Simulated scan of single mutants.
Amino acid sequence: MIPSELVDTFGRVHDYLRISVTDRCNLRCVYCMPADGMEFEPDENILSIKEITEVVRVMADMGVKKVRLTGGEPLVRKGIENLVSAIAGIPGIDDIAMTTNGIFLARKAQKLKEAGLNRVNISLDTLKADRFSLITRGGDVQRVLDSIAACQQVGIEPIKLNVVLMKGINDDEIEDFLQLTIDSQLQVRFIEYMPIGHNDLRWKQSYLPLSTVLERCHHLGWKVAASHHVRGNGPAQTFRIEGAKGSFGLIHPVSDHFCETCNRLRLTADGNIKPCLYWSDEFNVRKCIGNDDAVRELFSRALHIKPLNHEMAKAFVDESQTHVPTVRRMSQIGG
């Protein structure tokens, strides 16, 4: 019998599906892609809008309520507004979010809002123009700042800024990002550098535990309290500085992983179900689309082998791991 709910062997109920709509990106961020780019999947290997919609429809019947569209960069996907609209029309889906680098968001914000996009996460690892260009290998930070303003204007909220914290690269901007939360309703989320697709020396040299953020608040004399009123805060520990309009979150998969409460599955742009971000296990669902029972069964199989945690901390200290880490880059998985 095929289960009617997405429950794994540890009793975790999965109601959240992250979908990569493309492996392509207009930037080449240092922690996401190699400097010379990548060999992207040919168009015929990428799930169509209709195929993605069919998968979400079946998943909604199994209890999925939240969908996040990722990439690569989702806004380079042709017809992305049509996909948002199609997903918004599926009964049971009550929250649609997107993670984007923000470069193309300003000109699409209104259409995305009208299509049914509820909220957005914008990757922004620095507020400095020259540093942004270095981290993204050529990006223009002003376009991202304009996109934040555009989302505020059309009413997409909450707006979250994803900041991958890297030692010696952007850790001197922690205070600047925290100041944003004091002055505006933005939600800044500091994320630990993860060894996705490249467990190498550079990652370890750049890794910084997020306890650094709270230490900086203490050093500045800011009073900080836990905040439990942030919609869609997911794995983040969320805090608010006393008197601040916004909040900040800490996502620390390495130093203090959040796997025990994981409620998410991932679907890659080429149609592979990933039960865990870090491990290599994948199940290609494309051949099943059109057969609802087969889709349900494959997702159930994926959940059955989902481990209790990802063991990234072991990678940092070179301990042996119980599963095989993925060789895919973050841009190929969807984050």
Rank of each mutant, 00 (worst) to 15 (best):
I191F: 04
M166V: 06
T181M: 00
V224D: 05
Y207Q: 05
P253G: 11
L161W: 02
A236G: 08
S280C: 07
V224T: 09
N233H: 11
V224N: 09
R216Q: 02
I251V: 11
V164E: 02
N284V: 08
I182F: 02
L165P: 04
L165I: 09
S206P: 03
P275D: 02
K167Y: 02
M166Q: 14
W222N: 00
L165F: 07
Q153N: 14
E260D: 15
K160H: 08
D172N: 14
E173L: 13
K167M: 02
V254I: 12
H257T: 04
Q205E: 15
V285K: 00
H252V: 12
W203K: 05
L250P: 03
N284R: 11
D256I: 05
V224G: 07
C151D: 07
G246R: 00
L210K: 03
S247W: 10
N162L: 05
P195S: 10
R240N: 07
R264H: 11
G234P: 00
L178W: 01
I191L: 11
D200C: 13
T181F: 00
E215L: 04
K160F: 04
F258K: 07
G249L: 04
P195Q: 07
L265C: 13
P235I: 03
A225P: 00
F258P: 05
C276M: 10
P209T: 06
K287E: 15
P158V: 09
E242P: 03
I159M: 07
H228D: 13
I273V: 10
D171W: 06
K287W: 04
G168W: 02
I241C: 01
G232K: 10
K160C: 05
D172P: 06
E242H: 05
I159K: 06
H252K: 09
R231Y: 05
E192S: 05
P235F: 02
Q179V: 09
D200W: 12
I273S: 02
N263L: 09
G249W: 02
S206N: 14
L220G: 00
C288A: 14
S247E: 15
C276H: 08
S280L: 08
G168Y: 01
